[in-house]
Design a protein around this nucleic acid. Sequence first.
DNA 1: TGATAGTTGACTGTTTTACTCGGGTTTCTT
DNA 2: AAGAAACCCGAGTAAAACAGTCAACTATCA
Lengths: 150, 150
Amino acid sequence: MKLTTKGRYAVQAMADIAAFGGASAVSLSAIADRQGLSTAYLEQLFLKLRRAGLVESARGPDGGYRLARTADAISVAAIVEAVDEEIRTTACGGAPIGCRGDGGRCLTHDLWAALERHIETFLEDVTLGDIVTGRFAAPLSLSVVAEALA
Amino acid sequence: MKLTTKGRYAVQAMADIAAFGGASAVSLSAIADRQGLSTAYLEQLFLKLRRAGLVESARGPDGGYRLARTADAISVAAIVEAVDEEIRTTACGGAPIGCRGDGGRCLTHDLWAALERHIETFLEDVTLGDIVTGRFAAPLSLSVVAEALA
DNA sequence: TGATAGTTGACTGTTTTACTCGGGTTTCTT
DNA sequence: AAGAAACCCGAGTAAAACAGTCAACTATCA
């Protein structure tokens, strides 16, 4: 789960469709205008989003993109994973064992694995619908609950 | 809060000191041997860790580094922040308002701010002591609790 | 049949990352 | 006093990733 501007732009563009696209498709140029991005760059992003099955395209005049599922059924995690290639494996990357090359397990492996799961859980719980309506604050309050329990 | 291998190496090295350093200081070459890192790189990291007040140094033979506080009083967040320069401000970076340049607020700003806080909270709750003893799994179980509540 | 708009791969400049190098300075041991 | 161990510190660098562009093509609708 990489977190770059690419992923942020993708979420932003998808949120734009969720917010402004009704029954009709939304063209990239419309998104570019509203969000201040270049259409050329959006093309690259939507190529991946379409292949990931998150949007459907319509060609020709009045064409554009529309969400493949409802906004509430598309998680932010799915969007980020679609455009940001898989995180490159660091030394510890693939195998949970053998981080040090000598068969020993590095001291911190579990920590980063836990953090990664933590981030993924957070982003999986937030949907496009949450962003458009502002409801996405919910998962945050849960961490407050957790802190109160500790 | 950037998350790079630099930060991971720093945490790994600090954990090494917490695990292997008793009363005496731990030399960089000892850490380098155990963790499979280069001393030259470790020097760079520990320069920052020392300036951040996380470790104290002792020069001369038998010198090295020791933790400035107890392992339980040093959070992973503090280590990562010490070595990874402040996150460069993206378009949205500084101001919560005006992400789009036209005075409007971008749709996703709050989301990324919330995620950032989420990550920081997680790393602030984990200490070097937790890593060495394996106790750091605690924050994870809390998220499980949160999920059960949802 | 022409305009609109998606489709696609290749390409490129910049920035960041992840290091290394070389030369210091301090302190302990003998 | 000599020498070695170890920290101190700035400069430099090769490779990768990032962010974004370009050009050419195809499909659809009016």
